[in-house]
Computed example of a mutant assay.
Amino acid sequence: MKYNFGSPIIVFLIVAIHVMLPKHLAMASRATIPLHLKRNCTYAITIQTTCTKGAETSNHVSIRFGDSNSNDVLVYRLNSKHVKRLDPLEPQVLNDVPIKPFEVCTIDQFEHTSKCVELPVCYLYLKLTGDDDWRPGFAQIRVLEGPHLSSNYFYFRRYLPRNMWHGVDVCDNKGTPFGPKHKRKVFD
């Protein structure tokens, strides 16, 4: 059986495809996918409870945060996502006693996986559901897959109203002669 490949141009194209295609496929497999195109990101949520007497709570706490493109991440019952307690002054002590989040003078860390934000996190709201009072000090969101998308610290330092969203939005900062003006979001 005799094969006729035709002109030398066709032979050249076939050889070029066999040589170049594996190289381009290898380069494409190493390409990184932008975070906003990924399905999910992991968020490390850090919240401090102040040292004021009666600042702790055993109520359910919800959190919502996002970026200026309205990519909203909502976590109901943050208490169930507790990972660890952070103590900057003492080394971690490992024991079998369950750690209850939101106790006086503590910094708790939670982990949540959800859709990815496209821009840095610029708003954060907390909601306290129940009968206790709670006085958070600060909160911060770290995006583990993209540290450049992590938030600054959001400071509260006051008792939260119950059964309503309360927080800070610095997405649309506008300068005024009296200082920055922050727009607040309204949630149901």
Rank of each mutant, 00 (worst) to 15 (best):
residue 2 K to M: 12
residue 2 K to C: 08
residue 4 N to F: 07
residue 7 S to A: 05
residue 11 V to D: 03
residue 15 V to T: 14
residue 17 I to L: 12
residue 20 M to A: 13
residue 20 M to D: 04
residue 21 L to A: 15
residue 25 L to K: 13
residue 27 M to P: 00
residue 28 A to S: 01
residue 30 R to C: 02
residue 30 R to F: 00
residue 30 R to T: 03
residue 31 A to W: 05
residue 32 T to P: 03
residue 32 T to N: 13
residue 35 L to Y: 02
residue 38 K to L: 08
residue 41 C to S: 12
residue 41 C to G: 14
residue 44 A to C: 07
residue 47 I to P: 03
residue 52 T to W: 14
residue 56 E to A: 05
residue 60 H to Q: 09
residue 63 I to S: 06
residue 63 I to Y: 12
residue 63 I to P: 02
residue 66 G to Y: 01
residue 69 N to F: 00
residue 70 S to F: 06
residue 70 S to Q: 08
residue 77 R to M: 02
residue 81 K to S: 05
residue 82 H to K: 02
residue 84 K to W: 05
residue 84 K to R: 08
residue 87 D to S: 15
residue 88 P to C: 13
residue 88 P to W: 11
residue 101 P to G: 07
residue 101 P to V: 01
residue 103 E to A: 02
residue 105 C to E: 06
residue 115 K to L: 10
residue 123 Y to C: 05
residue 126 L to C: 08
residue 133 D to F: 05
residue 133 D to V: 04
residue 137 G to S: 14
residue 138 F to N: 09
residue 139 A to F: 01
residue 142 R to I: 11
residue 146 G to M: 12
residue 146 G to D: 15
residue 147 P to A: 08
residue 148 H to R: 15
residue 149 L to I: 11
residue 149 L to S: 02
residue 151 S to R: 10
residue 151 S to F: 08
residue 153 Y to Q: 01
residue 154 F to Y: 12
residue 155 Y to S: 13
residue 162 R to M: 11
residue 162 R to S: 10
residue 163 N to K: 04
residue 166 H to R: 08
residue 166 H to M: 11
residue 169 D to H: 03
residue 175 G to P: 14
residue 176 T to S: 12
residue 177 P to F: 12
residue 180 P to Q: 15
residue 184 R to G: 03
residue 184 R to D: 05
residue 186 V to D: 06
residue 188 D to H: 09
